[in-house]
Amino acid sequence: MLHSKKLVPYTFLIVPLILYLIWVIGPMAYTFYLSLTKWDGLSEPVFRGLANFERLFRDPIFFTSLKNNLRWIISFITIPVVLGLGLAIALNRAIPGAKFFKASFYSPLVLSLVVSGLIWSWMYHPAGGLINSVLRAVGLDNLARGWLSEETTVMWAIIAVAIWRQVGYVMVLYLAGLQGVDPQLIDASKVDGANAWNTFRHVIFPLLAPVTVIVVVISIIDSLRAFDLVSVMTRGGPYNSSSVLANFMYIEAFNNYKMGYAAAISVILFFISAVFIFIYLWRVTQDELEY
């Protein structure tokens, strides 16, 4: 089945590969060099060894960002996974209006994060926003607050938007996974007298385990990439309380012109992600090893 005329594959590969090496692989390698330099973006980078990393590990904003990314990850691998799985199971059967329900949960996915961020910023608005208006209307005035201007709520308010978007995606993946579950197995467990919860726990959930692994890994990688929402909604404020690594990096690079320092932040981001990318690659290519 596989053909082996020597040069043919390379003629197909050459153009895309050159483009990919120039714009993706090359730059990735160059980031590592930049992280060891002092560079303002205009003059030539000057080699400084590990100075950027030493500074980074003493920078409180770095640890705030790291903590916020961690909050993002933990929220992402719990709430959307539970909700997405629940919805997938509920909508995987003949239910009136299933199409409408599914489309409603997919719909946030087609909005850009910028648009989502703007609409939610307005919903969080302290005076005219929907959330505070509803709270005041039902007499819960003391719960109304500046969701995006208070340090204690801001990060969670942003993560909530990300979750709003993510649930539909997780649901899509589980719905696809459920297509692969043999209905006979579920019937068999019912014949054996298992109730709905036991069928879920001992039959459906284990069968969906490969989907769950992919969902969790994708959620973690997405959490580490988070940038747009923070950038549009708060730019990391107030007092860096909603800063995440990607946003911290952007500000150091393009507002403070400390590009070497910013490169060091992205190198850290790279190493954290690499662990999970490796798990993902290992999963998706497992059956490749046969040939």
């Binding site: 990919y20 730059p27 990688i221 990096m249 952007y250 992205s266 790279f270 993902y280 290519t285």
Partner: peptide
């Protein structure tokens, strides 16, 4: 194949400064 898949999964911020310079 690994290069292509791995590249997709990267946090693209890693490419930000070099691509800006390029």
């Amino acid at each position: 194949f690994f290069l292509y898949v791995g590249g997709t999964m990267l946090p693209f911020q890693v490419l930000l400064l070099p691509v800006f310079r390029l």
